[in-house]
């Protein structure tokens, strides 16, 4: 297996998933990913813990702004610079998991941290992440809730990530997720700059 690497098992995710379930309103507060132009996340709900400052793409030069953003050349915005969003201060249970992962992989810089939920029957459509971003950061998934029936494909490899596992995967490759289980699939996605 070349496109995935198991980093850890038995991560204690229960405190965090409990904290999330006690605050269901958090899923509705941020729709940036869901509404990202031509994005693959139309069936995904997100809680942003850390993310770059949001860009307003509206205007006559919308397409040009999107192009520059994807190349990390949009004046005033740096895709690699993420800031804490309010939910990161509410979901304090996430911090220990994030920092433990930073330590485990020798992280040099912490980027985006998001919690994504895909309902039963939902999917993230096939896509490859923005090359500039995928080249800079390594992407890790901590599985907060999942059941057999969830497919995670990257390139020509496909795996099932079980609850409590942490995985790296190559997000430069085309990847997709299909939730054909009977439960919500909830992952925490963490971008970490590692040694190059």
């Amino acid at each position: 297996m070349n496109n995935f690497q198991l980093i850890a098992t038995n991560v204690d995710v229960t405190p965090l998933i409990l904290a999330i379930k006690r605050r269901p309103e958090l899923w509705k507060e941020d729709t940036f990913l869901r509404h990202y132009p031509q994005g693959p996340f139309g069936e995904t709900e997100s809680i942003m813990l850390r993310f770059p400052v949001k860009v307003d793409f509206e205007g006559d030069d919308r397409e040009e702004k999107i192009r520059l953003y994807k190349e990390n050349m949009l004046p005033g915005f740096d895709q690699h610079e993420s800031i804490d969003y309010p939910p990161y201060k509410l979901l304090t249970e996430a911090r220990q998991i994030v920092m433990n992962l930073m330590a485990r992989v020798g992280g040099e810089r912490l980027g985006r941290v998001m919690i994504n939920k895909i309902s039963p029957g939902g999917r993230i459509f096939p896509h490859a992440d923005t090359p500039v971003h995928a080249e800079y950061y390594s992407r890790f998934h901590v599985v907060l809730q999942s059941r057999p029936g969830v497919i995670f494909r990257a390139g020509d490899e496909q795996i099932y990530m079980a609850t409590g596992e942490c995985w790296w995967f190559n997000n430069k490759l085309e990847h997709e997720v299909i939730n054909n289980s009977a439960e919500d699939r909830i992952h925490m996605i963490i971008d970490i700059r590692t040694s190059r």
Binding site: G121, P148, G149, I151, Q158, I159, Y160, I178, N180
Partner: peptide, 16 residues
């Protein structure tokens, strides 16, 4: 929806 999955025999044994 029917989907195909690469899975662990050992972990799926009880379902099997």
């Amino acid at each position: 929806m029917i989907t195909c999955h690469i899975e662990s025999f050992e972990e799926c044994l009880e379902e099997l």
